[in-house]
């Protein structure tokens, strides 16, 4: 068991960094997946994704990240394919882990192989803890006191401190803030500056956006800035947090996008079947991640725009 923190809780350095690197200048940040990843992600970075792979997840960015083979990454690991692709490609060496599994389809064979063979360092957290750690960074404070995880063995793996609250004597876990080198979020729509809107639940998009030094947004739709200004209350991520905006229709495939399209169940079943073995996993990566060079090529590979149109007719509608 280890006690070092993988991600940084240094909010003093974060303030300095934000002042020097973020801009309120309204400038267009539209670019391709390739450009966004190569410009803003570096070997050794500590990164995080939102939401998770079957739900509103920036999968076109994840696939490009794997293609570019950024190495020695630290990952805020709540997720499914988005984390498993990186693990299977051998790009991750440390991980703050809350849940990696496939819900209705069960355990992750990839996580099992990688962890059981000791190929990655891990620390355990709850989902609430992960979101609150981002929230602390978003607040600009070095830790946040909470009542989850008290008494659990997770505290032996993750380096979080427990103390008695000086006001009431209640025990609390002091969750360290976590500042991400790069955050990735997929949204329903954004303007070219990066002002972004999400329909449905917001997961932990707000917290992750504010806790990231670099933030890459992918969006189903790029809208006119006037559309943003007409409904400013709908902006969940303001442009000055955003470094890159990538137009990625069906960017959450094989996951879903609330009100737009359902998850691709047949593809997920095939994926689950393939990742049962190491060979099958590498074959999946070859065919669906390394093979297609762009998001458009990926869409063609998985069945084309016709299939996307069918998926858009399935799923929950308003």
């Amino acid at each position: 068991m280890q006690h070092e923190l993988f991600g940084s809780p240094d909010v003093e350095a974060f303030r300095q960094w934000l002042r020097e690197n973020k801009s309120f200048e309204l400038k267009e940040k539209l670019m391709s997946e390739q450009e966004a990843i190569s410009r803003f992600v570096h070997d050794g970075d500590y990164i995080g994704f939102e939401l998770y792979a079957t739900v509103r997840c920036p999968m076109s960015l994840v696939r490009e990240l794997v293609r570019q083979g950024k190495r020695n990454l630290g990952v805020l690991g709540q997720g499914l394919q988005e984390v498993d692709f990186l693990l299977a490609a051998g790009l991750v060496n440390r991980m703050d882990l809350t849940y990696v599994g496939y819900e209705v389809y069960g355990l992750s064979p990839i996580l099992r192989r990688v962890v059981e063979q000791g190929r990655v360092k891990t620390a355990e957290w709850s989902n609430g803890a992960i979101a609150w750690r981002l929230k602390a960074a978003a607040m600009g404070v070095p830790f946040i006191p909470v009542r989850s995880m008290l008494g659990s063995d997770m505290l032996k793996t993750n380096g979080a401190h427990v103390m008695k609250d000086p006001y009431t004597g209640t025990q609390v876990v002091l969750l360290p803030a976590i500042v991400l080198d790069v955050g990735f979020i997929h949204v329903h729509r954004a303007d070219p500056y990066g002002n972004a809107q999400i329909d449905g639940i917001s997961g932990f998009a707000v917290e992750l956006a504010r806790a990231s030094k670099r933030l890459i947004i992918s969006a189903e739709e790029i809208v006119d800035p006037e559309e943003i200004r007409r409904y400013p209350e709908r902006t969940v991520i303001p442009y000055f947090l955003v470094d890159a905006v990538v137009h990625a229709p069906f960017g959450s495939h094989p996951g879903e996008m609330a009100y737009l399209y359902d998850r691709d169940e047949p593809h997920l079943r095939m994926y689950m079947e393939m990742i049962r073995t190491e060979e099958g996993t590498q074959q999946y990566l070859e065919e669906y991640v390394y093979g297609p060079k762009t998001h458009e090529e990926y869409i063609e590979k998985v069945g084309g725009w016709g299939r996307m149109k069918v998926l858009s007719k399935l799923g929950v509608k308003r």
Partner: peptide
């Protein structure tokens, strides 16, 4: 670990 399970997720919360 003999078997790596998914982890806490929201379970601990």
């Amino acid at each position: 670990p003999k078997v790596r399970l998914p982890g806490s997720g929201g379970g601990n919360d």
